[in-house]
């Protein structure tokens, strides 16, 4: 019930947002919201902490940006190219990372993501520290001009809804039930005959692919693939968003992305203090607020 209300609220807010908020800012939030939802699929529903999701978010941005800019791909095909790239990358990373568990899983994903970061820094086509600039937004289906920010906004919102829908379906499918069983008790799931590693790998690939979709979309919005998107701090940010909103809740990551995004935006005048504040929020969340906003809300409503 709560999910339905929240979904309608999200739909209304999403459809009307460009009329009372700065569209580019909302689009940025939508990308991060999708990114956080994809990340939450892994941490919230399988219990795997990936510290390397920036590799997919940032990596897809570069590949899409390059495909659109250098090969003249249409925006949709460009985004799909980047997303496809992260599908393959996610498979490779997932295959390696699920060989280790718990804390090691986090360290392995972080180290693997660092390879992508250094490649983005050093490869000839990426523009090094300046990032890949001047990606044209192009036109959708040949007649919708994406340089119009309202057109661009609804295109991004549609992508967000598709990604969100895929995650929602995944969580509420038999497959998703098995994932949660693995989160609760891995050896039990194994003893029931589930090939735990295959489930984990598939969940990792879905999560990586959708994180890539979010990153690729972001590159088209800003016409720019930034190196910071692939930096480990972005991986940390998405963890924070998920944690603030509520681990393992459907809407938590969306709320968390908006909260953290709006906060960083409001505080941007404080320079390096933003990092201190975000770090403090991180510490507070871990110490006292582990359910997150939506998690706490759900608890209060269920009590009644």
């Amino acid at each position: 019930m709560m999910n339905r209300i929240l979904f309608v609220l999200m739909l209304i807010a999403g459809l009307t947002a460009p009329f009372y908020a700065y569209p580019v800012f909302v689009m940025d939030l939508l990308c991060f919201a999708l990114f956080a939802c994809a990340f939450n699929l892994l941490l919230g529903y399988v219990g795997l902490l990936s510290f390397g999701h920036a590799a997919f978010f940032g990596g897809a941005a570069y590949i899409s940006g390059y495909a659109i800019k250098a090969w003249g791909f249409s925006p949709i095909f460009g985004i799909l190219t980047g997303t496809g790239f992260t599908l393959i990358l996610g498979f490779c990373f997932g295959y390696l990372a699920i060989r280790r568990q718990g804390i090691y899983f986090a360290m392995v994903t972080l180290a693997l993501a660092q390879i992508v970061y250094f490649m983005a820094l050093q490869m000839p086509f990426t523009g090094g520290e300046n990032g890949l600039q001047g990606i044209p937004r192009g036109t959708l289906f040949g007649f919708i001009d994406l340089n119009n920010s309202l057109n661009m906004y609804y295109f991004v919102f549609a992508i967000f809804l598709i990604g969100f829908g895929i995650i929602y379906r995944t969580i509420h499918s038999p497959f998703g039930e098995v994932l949660q069983a693995i989160r609760e008790n891995e050896s039990r799931a194994l003893s029931l005959g589930y090939d735990v590693d295959r489930f984990k790998l598939l969940a990792f690939v879905i999560s990586a692919t959708l994180a890539g979709l979010a990153g690729a979309t972001k590159a088209v919005i800003f016409q720019f693939a930034a190196l910071t998107n692939a930096h480990w701090q972005t991986s940390g940010e998405v963890i924070l968003m998920t944690l603030v909103g509520g681990l393992g809740t459907v809407f938590g990551p969306v709320v968390g992305a908006i909260t953290v995004g709006a906060l960083s935006h409001e505080l941007s005048a404080f320079g390096s203090w933003v990092q201190v504040i975000l770090g403090t929020i991180f510490v507070i969340c871990v110490m006292t607020f582990r359910r997150g906003i939506i998690g706490e809300l759900g608890r209060v409503l269920n009590k009644k």
Partner: peptide, 23 residues
Amino acid sequence: LDHIYGLLLTFGITLILQGLFSN
């Protein structure tokens, strides 16, 4: 709790220390 919370806590502390000195 799950050991990942320890990792997340120390990550937050990292951000605080790094941000402080960056100022």
